[in-house]
Structures are given as C-alpha cells and as structure tokens.
Design a protein around this nucleic acid. Structure first.
Lengths: 128, 128
DNA sequence: ATAGTTTGTACACTGAAGACAGACAAATTG
DNA sequence: CAATTTGTCTGTCTTCAGTGTACAAACTAT
C-alpha cells in the first residue's frame, strides 16, 4: 500500500501525507471512514508514531481529515479548494521535471505515454 | 527560465539539477554547448555558487555534463541509461501523487488533462 | 612572459528541520 | 474502577542544505 523512500529528500511525514492524499483523491476512502491509528500505521511503515501524526495533522489542515482525540482520524467530506494557484508552477513544471527524471532513468517512452494517457482517461471519467 | 522555490523542501541544488535536466532532456542544449559558469548562474538565481556547483556535479555524475576545471560545464553526448529502475516507483506513483496535489489545490481537471495529453504527444514526437 | 582575473573546488561553520524518545491527558474498554 | 488505547506535547539529537572563505589552476591582456 504505502511505501516510504528513506533516500528521498522529501520528508517521511510528507511522503505519507502525499500517499494518503492520493488515495483520498482517488476515492478509496469515503467520508466517515476511519484511518488506522497513528501507532499502527507507524509500526506498519517502520517509523515513529509522531511522524505519522504529523502527516495526519497536515491532511487535517488541508481539510481531508477530522482529528479528534482518541477517536482516530475520520475522513471528512471534501470542501472546494478555493486556493487557485498557478497551474504552471504547481503542475506543468513538476510534470516536466518528473518526465525528465523518468527518461533519464531509462524508462521507455511507451510506458510513460501509456501512464499519461491512462491518467488523463481516469481524470475524464472523474475516477480520480 | 529557471525558478527556485525557497519554500520547497526540495533542496535548491536539486531544484536546479531538476530544472536543467528537464531542459537537457528537451534538447534545448545540444552536446558541446556550454552552460553558464557557476558564479553567473548563482547570481542569476540569487544563491551561492557552491549551491550551483553541487547541482552541476550531480548532473555530471548522471552523465549529462562534462566538468573540467576552469573550462566551464559542457553538455555531453548522452548515453542510454541501462539502469532500468522500476517504473511504478519512479514514475507512476509520483505522477499519481502530483495529480492528487494538483486536484487538491483546485486546478481544473481540464487543465490537467490538457497538460497530460500535451506531454504524451510531445513524447510520441520525440520532442522530449 | 607575467600580472591579474576568472573558475571550479575544498573545507569549516551555522542554522534549520526531520525523526525519535518518552511522558502526559483524556477517552475507551473490560 | 483499573487498564489500555490514542493523539499530543516537549525536548533532544542528528543530518544536511546553504553560506563564507580561501585556494589552485587556467585563461586573458598587455
């Protein structure tokens, strides 16, 4: 499910938040669902529970989770994100850099194209 | 041209490397071309020249640049990277997370789809 | 040829931040 | 009511990004 890359420059708590956010956006968790406790997920990932807690807190700040003491983290109904940031900075450029990295790593163009089209289709279907 | 986000957790030297790699992959620099000196680029970006030097060194390790003392950085003919890493880890997952972040930021699906298809077409045309 | 400038590198220092450890308070469970 | 569970808080430690500075080698100009 979730995988942590300790070699990455991206801090672990953010990797966790990113991974969970991806699943939340994908709708794999519906409103009201409960996420594992910080300790169980921490053990599962092999990190400290405080690290997981930080990820949960970040997602809560973004409005994805409802955090109540001793009641775990429950998925919240997602409100509209009014923050209208520039798409170039938050998407186009990172995408370009990601593609460059993938090509530099030797991944075949075909695979990348397939993934891109796949994501586009999923987006159109609203499945993401 | 290159933009640095100081708020990002990605270190500046890596942002520089990523940006340059993207341009190199895009073919905006051909073999034999000379990159700006570490100091000029550093002033241009408002960072220390050692930071730029670190980025250059990283790209040199990846085989993109030829670094010779006092001769600046020259773009090298790129060899095919046989190092075939797992595509899921290096591309599919980051792409999913990037999309999730973009959606969470409120970027319209249409824009994302357009960017994805655009990149796919460029890939097919070999322009990337 | 030589003095001065340019250029990449090496090394030490500083500050910030991530991850962990341990304790705590509150709520759930039996 | 006792024991366990659970998220939070505070403090510590380590790592590392970014900078300051000095240096050696090569280029330039006269």
């Amino acid at each position: 499910m979730l995988r942590i890359d300790l070699a990455s420059h991206v801090p672990v708590y953010e990797q966790i938040a990113n991974g969970l956010r991806a699943e939340l956006v994908a709708g794999r968790f519906g409103p009201g669902d409960k996420l594992p406790t910080v300790r169980t997920l921490a053990i599962d990932l092999g990190v400290h529970h405080n690290t997981v807690a930080q990820a949960y807190r970040q997602l809560a700040e973004e409005g994805w989770l409802e955090l109540k003491r001793h009641r775990g983290a429950t998925v919240r109904e997602r409100h509209r994100p009014s923050n209208r940031s520039d798409g170039t900075e938050t998407f186009a450029r990172p995408l370009r850099e990601l593609l460059a990295k993938a090509l530099a790593a030797g991944l075949p163009r075909k695979m990348l194209i397939r993934e891109l089209l796949d994501s586009a289709h999923r987006l159109e279907a609203g499945a993401l």
